[in-house]
Design a protein around this nucleic acid. Structure first.
Length: 388
RNA sequence: GGGGAGAUACUCAAGCGGCCAACGAGGUCAGACUGUAAAUCUGAUGGCACAGCCUUCGGCGGUUCGAAUCCGCCUCUCCCCA
């Protein structure tokens, strides 16, 4: 648990950095910097472009957590300016630009979610509007002149869009430059990102070199996939948001494909490597259960695991009503997105009351019957208690 | 600047005056089966205290008993030429 970075530890640290990495550019350079014995400035940027973080982001965050514990200085960049541009990485479409108000709203939830993984007391946080808001057009032009269009168009994502007759906004070319400029401004030693970020990270090296800094070490980590096998992403709707209830999170994690269980254990938990080997050699059920328990326990606390197997308690939603139609009750408990949705679930036999299937959406649930166990499918349930 | 094509629900994509809350596919949700998995089969998939009503087909107006479908203007995108 020693947090001091001493030269003698540099080899161990090198291992810590490179574990699980896809790209490490340049390894020798990292080794050299570690040898200096100082706390390296490790940059990680996130755009508050959607309100919630999900497990995909956590691959990076867990690595940062380990590095932070090893005494590295984590520098978190909240991309409030870049969020208004939208990262074109992996995008086959023009991303809608966010307004400043939307970005502000997302930013707050981000920080609180990151604090579950990182010690924010020891984390340096910057918004990139700190420097971008001060730039004049002249400065923007100068930054833009540091990169060529040909170089930009090398990116597969842009190539693909050109091929598919999809629009590319000029402002999208600015995105990698902005991200790279962040590195210059905070004098990053290392920048961490998903493997799809390689191009952007390399631009950071390029810009640092041009401005007389030593280019940062670039470290990319694997992207984990969502339910559908594609990169886990909010926009593909295949992600596991950190805001999920313990129950939702647990069950979604259980749906991970068998072949990814090991990777998730390595990237998203702090289970010892030897233990991971042991788990993966055994029954998948146990490995998955452990994985889901680790992840859910980490974000919601160990005691939440009881709630996963038991239904969480919720009060009767409308204290003034003596009875409510089943569908409306489900909606008001927040177990379904809409009343119509609840009705459909009921009609399809997905809902049980105290273990008995209820198929009538307008069935009147009496308040006098409380407490009552209501289950909707396998993943949603509530123990309804009388109002206090 | 000139010419052509297009904008439909989470995504892709049919529909081209009433039978349209809108074919189909993917996704998602649920049921069966299972390992609370995957695969497979089945059903559902705008909202509403729901046999009815309300709001949707880029936007605003118009024609019509009736418009996603016809007309006008606007916004946005792609392609070809300059």
């Amino acid at each position: 648990m020693s947090a001091a970075a001493r030269p003698t530890m540099s080899l161990k640290h090198l291992e810590l950095f490179s574990q699980g990495a896809i790209d490490l550019i340049e390894r020798a350079d990292l080794s050299l910097r570690l040898g200096s014995g100082r706390a390296l400035r490790v940059k990680f940027g996130m755009d508050p472009s959607s309100p919630d973080l999900h497990l995909g982001h956590c691959v990076q965050l867990f690595k940062l957590r380990a590095l932070q514990r090893a005494g590295m200085q984590i520098v978190l960049i909240v991309g409030d300016s870049t969020a208004m541009v939208g990262d074109p990485s992996g995008r086959n479409k023009l991303r809608p630009q966010l307004t400043r108000a939307e970005v502000e709203a997302n930013l707050e939830t981000y920080i609180s979610q990151v604090s579950k993984v990182l010690d924010m007391q020891r984390t340096e946080v910057h918004r990139n509007s700190e420097w971008f808001d001060k730039m004049r057009f002249e400065d923007v032009l100068q930054l833009a002149s540091r990169m060529t269009v040909a170089r930009m168009l090398e990116r597969d994502t842009f190539q693909k869009r050109v091929g598919d007759n999809e629009p590319i906004g000029i402002h999208e070319f600015l995105y990698p430059l902005m991200q790279g400029w962040d590195s210059v401004m905070i004098r990053a030693d290392v920048e961490l990102g998903g493997s799809d970020q390689l191009f952007n990270l390399i631009v950071g090296r390029h810009l640092q070199e041009q401005t007389g800094q030593t280019p940062q070490v670039v470290l990319t980590l694997p992207l984990i996939t969502g339910f559908d096998g594609r990169k886990m992403s909010k926009s593909y709707d295949n992600s596991i948001p950190l805001t999920d209830s313990a129950r939702e999170m647990f069950h979604k994690v259980l749906r991970v494909e068998d072949k990814n269980v090991k990777q998730w254990l390595e990237l998203l938990t702090e289970v010892e490597p030897a233990e991971i080997e042991r788990l993966c050699a055994g029954d998948w059920r146990d490995a998955k259960d452990r994985l889901a328990s680790e992840i859910t326990g980490f974000f919601h606390g160990r005691q939440s695991l009881d709630d996963v197997r038991e239904a969480p308690s919720m009060p009767w939603p409308d204290p003034t009503a003596d009875r409510m139609p089943l569908a409306n009750l489900i909606k008001q408990l927040g177990l379904s997105a809409s009343t119509s949705d609840a009705r459909r679930a009921v009609q399809q036999g997905a809902v049980t009351l105290d273990g008995t299937v209820a198929t009538d959406p307008v069935f009147q649930v009496e308040r006098a019957r409380l407490p009552l166990l209501l289950q909707l499918g396998k993943r949603r349930a509530a123990r309804i208690l009388p109002p206090t």
